Simulated scan of single mutants.
Amino acid sequence: MTNREEENLPFIDQVAHENVETATLAMGCFWGPEAFYGAMEGVIRTRVGYAGGSTENPTYRSLADHIETAQIDYDADLVSYEQLLQQFFLRHSPTAEPYKRQYTSAIFFKSTEQETAAKKAIKQAEERLGHSIRTELIPYHIFYLAEERHQKWKLRRAPELLSELSKIYPDFHAFNNSTAVARVNGYLGGNGNLERLIKEVASFGLSYPAQQLLLNQYQTQQIDGCSMR
């Protein structure tokens, strides 16, 4: 990418991050978790896919023993793995038995530090909830990116906003790796908070009418109380 191309990117995508780490988490259906984490301060990129199974190259129609999973790249100087895990246990039902393998609650750890943090978070969640946690703790092996239609699910149901961001990022991988795209997808789900959205909405590369549309849709989601649907 040339300097001129970089200058035309949304401001939030021009921010440099020196301490990037990755969390791989499964919380049932992956659309809601991707939107929730996408609006979280310190998160840089989100994507959804499949992990935890034994078969190669799973698809949504042929998952076999894989689990629907969200993967989050975050700036560890702004948000910690422990904070991500805290929200993980607040945002789904880790005590419930999944009715399908693909909706299993799971934490895929990449290091001893992540494993230790996950065990501590599970213990804290059990103490808080007073029930055994069914979340599986699994060593990270491989993450298969889900089909394009599953990425940024909330945004794909907002055609005007999707059109503007797709013009900025016509390449799918650049689109999917954009912080601006992750944020818009998250706010469209009613996640985050209005004060921060107002503060950073101008950094997403959207036109003024599109910014107002995002703000309106965010507030509608807040009224409906459906941020994780």
Rank of each mutant, 00 (worst) to 15 (best):
E34D: 10
M228T: 03
L63C: 10
V181T: 05
G52L: 07
I44W: 03
A146F: 05
Y169N: 11
T46K: 01
F175K: 05
E5R: 13
E18D: 09
P94K: 12
L214H: 09
L145H: 02
S132D: 14
R47G: 15
L145W: 00
A39V: 08
Q221W: 06
A35P: 07
T69V: 00
G49T: 00
H141D: 12
Y103A: 03
I67M: 03
C226W: 03
R196D: 10
W153N: 10
A16D: 14
P10W: 07
Q83H: 11
R183V: 09
Y218R: 08
T59F: 06
N57S: 11
A182L: 04
M40D: 01
F143I: 04
E200I: 12
T46D: 08
I72K: 01
A210P: 14
S178A: 10
I12S: 01
P94D: 11
C29K: 09
K154G: 08
T116L: 05
G42P: 01
Q86P: 06
S132K: 15
A23Y: 05
S105A: 12
P10V: 12
V20M: 05
R196N: 11
Y169D: 11
Q83M: 04
T22I: 08
E6P: 05
L194T: 14
T59C: 08
A174M: 09
H92N: 02
K154N: 13
W153A: 13
L161F: 07
R101N: 13
R101V: 14
V181Y: 01
A202M: 09
Q221L: 11
E148K: 09
V184C: 07
G49K: 02
R134A: 14
H17K: 00
I122Q: 13
L213Y: 07
S163C: 04
E195M: 09
Y144D: 08
T95Y: 15
A182T: 06
P98G: 15
G38W: 03
A158E: 04
R61A: 10
Y81V: 02
Y144K: 05
A146K: 02
H131V: 04
G52N: 09
L129W: 12
Q221D: 07
H92P: 00
I168G: 08
H150N: 11
T179W: 03
I138D: 06
K120Q: 12
E68T: 03
L63H: 04
A182R: 03
A64H: 14
D65N: 15
T220A: 10
E113T: 06
R4N: 06
A76I: 03
L145E: 14
H150R: 10
Q222N: 15
A70M: 02
T55H: 12
